[in-house]
């Protein structure tokens, strides 16, 4: 099944880096750029929803526009030996021409119309 390639340009493209210490909230920024000539709806998903606040966690990006997402890692006891397995996914779909409401858009979306990109989370301590 040929999946649609992600239309958005993600920066960073693969890894979200969080620099400690992790005794307070640590924020990583993810920029989504829409190089196409169509409006693109996005929503952010993660394997660890209770560990992060994501703002905005969904929205619509106009043609040629970009949006900056703040990914806020909540404080936790960092274990340097434990490699983070958290992942993020940016799921996107071209906005329909008729302004249907956002929820039905995602509910009725056909798998072939969905695009997604996955990012890993990388934790690093400030170099001593």
């Amino acid at each position: 099944m040929s999946k649609l390639d992600q239309v958005l340009i993600l920066d960073p493209p693969c890894d979200l880096r969080f620099k400690g210490p992790f005794t307070d909230v640590v924020t990583a920024n993810l920029k989504l750029k829409n190089p196409s000539d169509r409006r693109v709806c996005f929503k952010v998903k993660t394997t660890a929803p209770r560990r992060y606040c994501v703002r905005p966690n969904s929205g619509v990006i106009d043609p040629g526009a970009a949006v900056n997402i703040s990914v806020m890692l909540q404080p936790f006891d960092y274990d340097p030996n434990e490699k983070s397995k958290h992942k993020f996914m940016v799921q996107t779909i071209f906005a329909p021409s008729n302004n249907s409401d956002n929820d039905s858009l995602w509910k009725d979306a056909k798998p072939d119309d969905l695009m997604d990109s996955k990012l890993r989370c990388v934790f690093e301590m400030p170099s001593e």
């Binding site: 929503k43 952010v44 998903k45 992060y52 606040c53 966690n57 992942k87 993020f88």
Partner: peptide, 14 residues
Amino acid sequence: ALSEDEFHDAVSES
């Protein structure tokens, strides 16, 4: 390859 990860909608409030 199928990834074993299970994704949930991210939340905007802690």
